[in-house]
Design a protein around this nucleic acid. Structure first.
Lengths: 148, 148
DNA sequence: ATAAAACATACTGATTTTATAGGAAAAGGA
DNA sequence: TCCTTTTCCTATAAAATCAGTATGTTTTAT
């Protein structure tokens, strides 16, 4: 499914933080902005949402910055995306106008709710720790070598 | 996940057609429009896409209309939605600017591709036949009766 | 010929997304 | 105390997408 720029930025930022995770260290938005090539001003809005979603904590002022609220193993892609993304789950009350309520019901049950459930299940199974490992694997073993 | 009005209308329309499915019968847009309470003019656009996606066939002129291209058991919610919905799958080439390619890779593999896969799997398992059955079940046994 | 339908295209208005701008508040260090 | 660094807050703007209308054309049965 389509994930908005906000969601993608949030995930990338948070994985980047997890890569250099060690207790007590604060990371500034500017450093993340430069590392990922994302506008710092836009990241501010993203992190405002991440903070509200209790994905990160923050300290203001000089030497301040952001920190993951929990260890990478205890933060899932689902949590990150739900705190940032608006359209991750179906929030429409009526799929279709008031007529034909039995079709409404069948779609809700058989399609929309089913979809939301698998999306949630899939995303909740992915942790930041895993994503960092995946990135690491790519760094080291990414290129294919030919021995001749 | 959020399905657009186009997608919801398409599903509702196509389930409605499946309810009265019998070989050779053509159904007019106007009748679907009235049955579901959806603007006929808008439905025209939706059915243009459904036709391109080979979900329905059509006959022009008086006594014409639309028909399901296959029996309800052989049409999945996935096919209906892909022919109509733009954002069902991830089509972004870069999740994040060119920097940090290993994070890019981890997200693609661990999140976006994984998501697309489960969405496709879930939706392809739902057939129009099943949705019609679900609707029928709601019709008959939906209301709870109290005997006193 | 007429009426009923699909088909095609253009347009409009509203909402959402993706940013940018400017400054206020907090905290550390000189 | 003052300066710098940083988060935080709100407003604005531009672009894209979505939802829906409008208008007309083709095709076909009667």
């Amino acid at each position: 499914m389509r994930i908005s720029a906000k969601g993608r930025y949030a995930l990338a930022a948070v994985v980047s933080m997890a890569q250099q995770y060690q207790n007590g260290e604060f990371i500034t938005l500017i450093s993340i902005s430069e590392k990922l090539g994302i506008s710092k001003i836009y990241l501010e809005q993203v992190f405002s949402l991440l903070k509200r979603g209790e994905i990160v904590t923050s300290v203001k002022g000089a030497q301040g910055g952001y920190q993951l609220a929990r260890i990478p193993r205890q933060i899932s892609a689902l949590e990150v995306l739900t705190s940032v993304e608006t359209g991750l789950f179906d929030k429409t009350e009526d799929t279709v106008p008031e007529k034909a309520p039995e079709i409404e019901y069948a779609l809700r049950l058989g399609v929309f709710d089913a979809l939301d459930e698998t999306v949630a299940k899939t995303l909740s199974a992915v942790t930041l720790e895993e994503l960092v490992q995946e990135a690491e694997r790519h760094k080291s073993g990414g290129a294919v070598m030919f021995y001749i």
